[in-house]
Design a binder for these strands. Structure first.
Lengths: 301, 301
DNA sequence: CTACTTGATACCTTTAAGGTATTACCAATT
DNA sequence: AATTGGTAATACCTTAAAGGTATCAAGTAG
């Protein structure tokens, strides 16, 4: 049994005539006759009655014709779906996201990807930095989003953007009217920091900045993420330094003001990490979307 | 593309090693390598990653493996059905069954059908709801049994019975002596639910019932099927709500008690699904047996 | 009966699958 | 760093089988 034989059989069944079917198949009549005979031999069933005008399907032949069409269509489907999967247009992509990164950039990228590759099922996982790295290695996810990543031998990363620092202030605070706050103005003021968790993280950047500027940092609370930190500002716990992209989050009584008087390297990156040896087309397609997003971002700025 | 190549591909995918697969296929390694290469060329997709230990499926390869198995099984079916038709026998009916439905109703129906049509070869397939629908559309099965089916344009269904709810209890539990358990008595008690998988399912029904009765549902475990759920009851994990037809399953230390105080719509159907445009005499015969079974069931009640 | 059409057969050519020997490659080990 | 064991890939040859040409046999129509 052979796909060729099935195709030949369907042609003969449709033409009800071996010679005509042979022409349609661009072969000569004798080999076609032989292929049909072989098929009948193998199935041990007569598929056609030979008549003077050509051939006619037996009832078994009629049944086999239906089956044959199903088989051919399933094969066609399989080819097409596999090709699409090979181009990254079909499948499932597991993506890890983290606390404050979710606020606008990541949804934007995911929305673009979904539009470009509607056949791909995106599954999101909330994971800390350490969890993301472990999950990448175990192939439970293909991409992770995070900040301040130390380079690793088996993991590559692409920086998406660099956030400047901003200060979250209660709007009834004297500093809230200023267009720019200088770091020195926060000397010994109560500060809420985040996140708890794997180093290096955003806290380390913030404390380095304070240290280099010779300003005393008075940490009153350490919380799990930006949202909680900003909520505490709203609750009057003090100031909170945040990456500028977190400023899309609006809470009652909280204003965001750019932080001035900082060195150029006082920024946090948002990066996208993936296994160095993952060459799957889905990942490539995703990274292409990330790059496109990134270059568009740069052109705007 | 060739059936031979598909068979070869499946063998390599299963062995994860071209040399071993070649042995299994009783050919030598080089031609097998070449056939796989040809297949990849034709599909223009890399199906395997070559590693030091052998080969590994790419995601496209994984997809093609599923498709390939479907194709091979359809071909096998086609051959068998055609041969039977040629011998004047009735044929073969592929039936999909699922987890807990197998316990008594389905075997009863199959037994009746086998008695009435001894010439028909019934081939059973274990499939989830989603798999059944896909397999119906690809004609790999003709009938499926399942519960809680949402209506679909191309698929018809016949309800066989409606199961009331029962509670599986450990027999050393105080409630185990009662003839009837009221839902309120399960307030905040540990509950095991099933199944995992496609919605809507039995869990949704159960949680709706709890909600409407204003009773707090305290889910301690979610498991794959009724058998596992009841096994956990036996293991002391708590209660488990089941469709009454699952109560034929006896496990040590487990008692089944009817659940009272429920609305009339607190039932799960067991239904039989098939393609709307399948007019094969075999399917009609099967559905006739199902109807007969159903009406007999109603007369008893 | 003859002309014509059909599928079947005989025999040759060509394509492609399968085999053997060998190479290239990677990883683990020494 | 070199070696070994196991893997897939390549080169080249052999063989099986698909396809082609010529012809035959068997019906049907005129």
């Amino acid at each position: 049994m052979d796909i060729r034989q099935i195709r030949y059989f369907v042609a003969v069944a449709e033409e009800r005539n071996i010679g005509r079917a042979a022409k349609r198949l661009f072969i000569s009549q004798p080999p076609l006759t032989r292929q049909i005979q072989q098929l009948e031999d193998e199935l041990q069933v007569k598929l056609f009655e030979r008549t003077a005008k050509g051939v006619e399907l037996t009832s078994a032949g009629q049944l086999f014709l239906n089956e044959s069409r199903n088989i051919l269509s399933l094969i066609e489907q399989a080819q097409e779906r596999t090709q699409r999967a090979g181009k990254g247009q079909l499948g499932r992509l597991d993506v890890a996201i983290f606390g404050s990164g979710i606020l606008n950039t990541i949804p934007d990228i995911l929305k673009r990807f979904k539009t470009a590759y509607p056949g791909v099922n995106i599954v999101l996982h909330q994971m800390s930095k350490a969890e993301q790295i472990e999950a990448l290695r175990q192939k439970r996810i293909s991409v992770g989003f995070n900040r301040l990543l130390a380079p690793l031998p088996d993991i590559d990363s692409t920086m998406i953007l660099q956030d400047k620092l901003m200060v979250a202030v209660r709007d009834d605070h004297p500093l809230a009217t200023k267009p720019l706050i200088n770091l020195k103005e926060l000397d010994n003021e109560p500060i809420v920091v985040f996140p708890k968790g794997a180093r290096p993280n955003f806290v380390d950047l913030v404390s380095r900045v304070f240290q280099e500027a010779g300003v005393t940092m008075n940490i009153t609370q350490t919380v799990i993420d930006a949202v909680t930190g900003i909520a505490l500002v709203s609750g009057g716990f003090g100031f909170c330094l945040i990456p500028s992209s977190a400023s899309v989050l609006q809470l009652p009584g909280v204003k965001y003001i750019p932080l001035g008087g900082l060195p150029d390297n006082a920024t946090v990156d948002l990066s996208c990490i993936y296994l160095k040896d993952d060459h799957s087309p889905l990942l490539s397609a995703f990274l292409a979307v990330v790059h496109e997003y990134k270059s568009q971002l740069n052109n705007q700025a």
